[in-house]
Design a protein around this nucleic acid. Structure first.
Lengths: 166, 166
DNA sequence: AGCTTATGTCAGTCATGTTGACTTTCCAAG
DNA sequence: CTTGGAAAGTCAACATGACTGACATAAGCT
């Protein structure tokens, strides 16, 4: 530690308002960049970001129910339904009646659904990979730690469910 | 280094598709949490996220011109204008004619504009501070490195302008 | 049989983005 | 000094993706 001053064992300069504001701006700009590549692709298919999100989570958890997807996405069923309906009509998503509980609908990607999901996520992973490679493994670990800490308890629980999904 | 295998000096396990997908999801959930606190406050004032963004950047760079703000926000002038008009009408933002170039309008926050900006950014900074504190300075450095690397060249330049602003 | 849950739908509203066209004001170069 | 272009503002129309509220159907549960 090269700092003097009244702090404890570690310097707390990373907690100044100025540093926090810079972090806030970095989140804004990075998130915009992060969504820009899929957005370009989606335009060609006349879909929106909402479709991407649905495809993403159905791909992550094939067979998840509509209500689970609602919870994960944090939107109303009316909002999701519009998106889901077009995806099903266009044959990207399949809707199977639950075996145990026949009220439930389990969602799966079809082959063309998977193809689009792959195209979208590939663009996004490419950017993420470049960023990870540039920053290095140590930085990536920190990145993940901060993001995890940024979600409140509710979100962390949801996220964990997905992380641990089969 | 404890790893064997065919990688170079460092293990590349942090670049697997699975790790990248987890990073993508973390960005999604963290960003949603990140915007949730200001969003709640904005509801009470019948403003939206777009108003928050305008207030934020005007606060960061008092006197910036409309076209600079347009560039930073990356939206059309028609879209910004609707937001800016209400903010000016409501007396949160002031619009001064440029001294050198009278075509330009320089934007400033009024006292009540500053008050709202402070309220919004305080909520956001609180979350960011908690996350930073939880994760620690090392992690924060990594977080910033990854975010910076995630923006493309265009964005990094814009961001730098703001970082270096007086 | 009756209550609840899961899903789906219709209708209306709102916030925020877009494009295109046009005006006013003003700077700057010919 | 005129003219072309830049900065700002506005009107109109439209798309997306949120929201609320109301309602319908099917199926599970008590």
């Amino acid at each position: 530690m090269a700092e003097g001053g009244a702090q404890g064992g570690e310097t707390l300069l990373f907690l100044t308002d100025e540093q926090l504001r810079k972090g806030i701006e970095a989140m804004f700009f990075a998130y915009r960049a992060f969504t820009s590549d899929p957005d370009k692709i989606l335009e060609n298919h006349s879909y929106g970001r909402a479709h991407h999100r649905a495809l993403h989570f159905i791909n992550r958890q094939p067979g998840l129910t509509v209500s689970s997807l609602l919870t994960v996405l944090g939107v109303t069923k009316q909002s999701l339904n519009r998106v889901l309906r077009t995806l099903i009509e266009d044959g990207l998503v399949q809707n199977r009646v639950g075996k145990k509980d026949k009220r439930e609908r389990h969602l799966y990607l079809t082959d063309i659904g998977e193809a689009l999901e792959r195209e979208l996520s590939e663009a996004q992973r490419n950017r993420m990979r470049d960023a990870y490679r540039t920053a290095g493994p140590q930085a990536v670990a920190g990145f993940r730690q901060v993001l995890d800490a940024m979600m409140d308890g509710e979100l962390q629980r949801q996220f964990k469910t997905i992380k641990d999904a089969p």
